[in-house]
Amino acid sequence: MIRHIDVAVQKIFEMKEKEPVKFKRLIDEGIMLGLGVDLDDRSKEMTPANHIKKHNRPKDPEYAAVAEAVIEGDRAETVKLTTALLGEGKDPTDLVLNALMPGIQTVCELYDIGESYVPEILLANEALIGGVELCQERIGEVPSQGRVVSLVIEGDVHDIGKNIVAAILRANGFEVVDLGSDITVETAVRAVKAANADLVTGTTLMSTTKGGLKALAEVLDTEDVPVACGGAAIDRRFVETFGNSVYGKTPLDAVKIARKVCEGKNWKDVRKELH
């Protein structure tokens, strides 16, 4: 036995001579183990993405499964799980706030740090809508940060940008009434009144149709509902040629505008803060 220890010590000294770096690491690890630190855990350091997922994950495992289905953008699975939970008698409002929303919230936070991309937000949004619709059938109205009407203005049908804006607004807790594309001023005004909306987002890709946004903002001035304008044909200079409007370059700008408007700020103040 003693002989063996002699051999071991000799080996250790040899190693100290030949491989000082490895020697030091092993000594350090030995000390750490002696102090009761689990080294396995240290190698699995929390990445920001894992942190976001963990932080948003619902405690209840059944709710966590719903959130996961939304993150995966799996509409069928989301609908299946939500239906089952509603069948069990779970509160629909609670489901929206604590199972469905944490899923989309996770995707959006991942997007903010560059770990998720627009197509995934759109898929997660589809899944979210599937679940929320089921809950809405039970309760009629779901609590939200505010209500936004989204549209592509009359004469234009390019709706990719509008869809992204609507998805990201929903993900951030706003209720979105998506009117679609080629929407006349009259239709938009009717929808704004019917929904009692706080804000309209209007987009267009073609320079020939941008005048419609101006007309819409001017008509909605009397309703005190501002229009957030964006899209390839729109820029800040154009938006500043008329009132009751705010310019947004990215979908995240739409969220900023919506937050400020729903806090009760008027379009002039929002412009001042964002333009």
Partner: peptide, 8 residues
């Protein structure tokens, strides 16, 4: 100049 039907 317009892609949708409504404006036309």
């Amino acid at each position: 100049a317009f892609a949708g039907k409504n404006a036309l």
